[in-house]
Design a protein around this nucleic acid. Sequence first.
DNA 1: TCCAATATAACAAACGTTTTTCCAACACTC
DNA 2: GAGTGTTGGAAAAACGTTTGTTATATTGGA
Lengths: 345, 345
Amino acid sequence: MRNSSKPVGIEDVARRAHVSITTVSRVINHVPTVHPKNIERVEEAIAALHYKPNVSAQRLASGVTKAIGLVMPGYPGIFYSFYAVELMRGVGHGCESLQLDMVFHITNGSNPLKSNSVGGIVFADVIENRNQVDAALEAGLPCVIVNNHLKDVETHYIALDNLLGGRMAAEYLTGLRHRRIATITGNVKTQAGAERLEGFAKYLKSKNIPLPEQYIYPGDYSRQSARRAMEQFLKLPERPTAIFAASDDMALEALAVLAENGLKAPRDISLIGFDDNPACLNAPVALTTLHQPLFRMAEEAVRLLHSIMQGKTKKIVRKMIAPSLIVRESTAPYVPIQNSKEGHK
Amino acid sequence: MRNSSKPVGIEDVARRAHVSITTVSRVINHVPTVHPKNIERVEEAIAALHYKPNVSAQRLASGVTKAIGLVMPGYPGIFYSFYAVELMRGVGHGCESLQLDMVFHITNGSNPLKSNSVGGIVFADVIENRNQVDAALEAGLPCVIVNNHLKDVETHYIALDNLLGGRMAAEYLTGLRHRRIATITGNVKTQAGAERLEGFAKYLKSKNIPLPEQYIYPGDYSRQSARRAMEQFLKLPERPTAIFAASDDMALEALAVLAENGLKAPRDISLIGFDDNPACLNAPVALTTLHQPLFRMAEEAVRLLHSIMQGKTKKIVRKMIAPSLIVRESTAPYVPIQNSKEGHK
DNA sequence: TCCAATATAACAAACGTTTTTCCAACACTC
DNA sequence: GAGTGTTGGAAAAACGTTTGTTATATTGGA
């Protein structure tokens, strides 16, 4: 079945199409100055011979590499979460539409930078692999960071506007006339966690809505921390009427604690999450949340990188993406207490 | 900071080390016939000049491609599950240790095969992208399939022995003296689902333990199907004393249904899952299950592929990997009914 | 001292493209 | 009909390595 001899090369195509090698190359690279008749001939020959250009030769001759790297933190890290998956899918999709190869690299700690087989790198969720970013920049490789931004590194990024997200949560809940709003923060040592809290708190302050100390529970994205937070909130003499959890995962646990105490969202307490984690779709109460468009962000990162690689983008691009509010069932307008247990519908 | 001129090449290294280009190449490729002194010199020069070989040129000249492809089914598919993640991590780790680049490709349906930029392909969870496998084989690319096997395709695979897995579940439960054992099957249209059931049923039959129709609930890996299964089982006059769920996810739902009915595993019913899904680690009752060593399987697939690419492996390798039994809390020996509610400890 | 044998190293020819340079052919214009 | 553009194609020079072949030291034995 398989012809054991040499693979077909550009020369074979040229011979069969009765044109020169140059012309074949031009057809492949869509150079406009080729006679239509010749284009047709060449394409026929390519199809007939099952010709595939040798990528290495193309790269070597042209100096252009049609591949990008994607580096992600490995386990233990964000890798197990839906973040990773969405980001990967987005990058994959972007590469697909741009006809780029995607070489994938999982960071195990402080691994050396990969060889020069890519024309640029997308870094997803940079945390402590910033030395890798530095190395890549040093090597002259274009880099785009997605879903995170390093304050002190001079490079492009596409990041979620967590500050705005926190603010949106606060805005939405106050718009529902809630005035006693508590929050279970994410790990405030992470930028995302800190910013979500900051945006949230600042908005309340600007509206003169008090945010007492005991309404801020310093969580860490873990279920356990959400549980402790809820237990604290429920013990309070002035129970909050709404809660902003900095992740859907924590919101889910909050929902569970509520249920264990015979309470229900949104009847007793409104609850808003963050992330729009698909794993939370089958929660007992559908979660109102702030959606992170990770897929689109990743895709855009690839587009940006490609444009940089082509020299089309010169200036540093730093883009903040707004989360979007997804209103589902876990939030409702504040209803003043009626002395009875009866809830409004 | 950056020197704008040409990147350093092998020639620059040779000049600085006062040796020929050939010698430098030999040092890079660890050819043994180089004088130690020269090795040292060359390495010094490489380090001093920050020389990185041009991968494209290496590939072109040597004809060897130090990169493999990983193709995975895209969404909607297995991509969101831990399967994908474990498999990817395994492949990533294998590539790392073998110094291979890994170019990643998410299949969106019937996409054409990627260019010839890889020396071989690992297919993860092949379902209906078998035309891609065929295309790759046709193109002369070595292929290894992991976590699945296509009966009618002549290629290598590393697959989980689901038949054995089902059998192990049955063996373990009967070893605990259970005699009324039910199963919630996976989707029996998938090979895995069918085989898990088959192995399970065959073992019981061989031991003359009855497996009545109503003890086999045809699930589909979904939570809902597990719920329906449990509702059916609990209504039975002769309730099963043990249940084999073909996935941890379904087992988890079964646990929930049990709890809703005031029952508990393993006190009232023993429950064994399949997969060892890390997402189920924080279940209320730790799940006894059959572990799939996906990570190791993927790693091994890469090793195998590499060996094929080097011409070291000629014959077709088809390997079945045994799952391993992980005993946790959800199973216990069968205790004859005592007329009272008191359970044994 | 000379020769054979054995380590090392150098030369030069691939590897399969892209791309620059140059030339021919053709169509205009005056 | 000569001059001037314009268009399309051919020849050949890169691109940065690897590698088969040939040359040069170096060593040991006679």
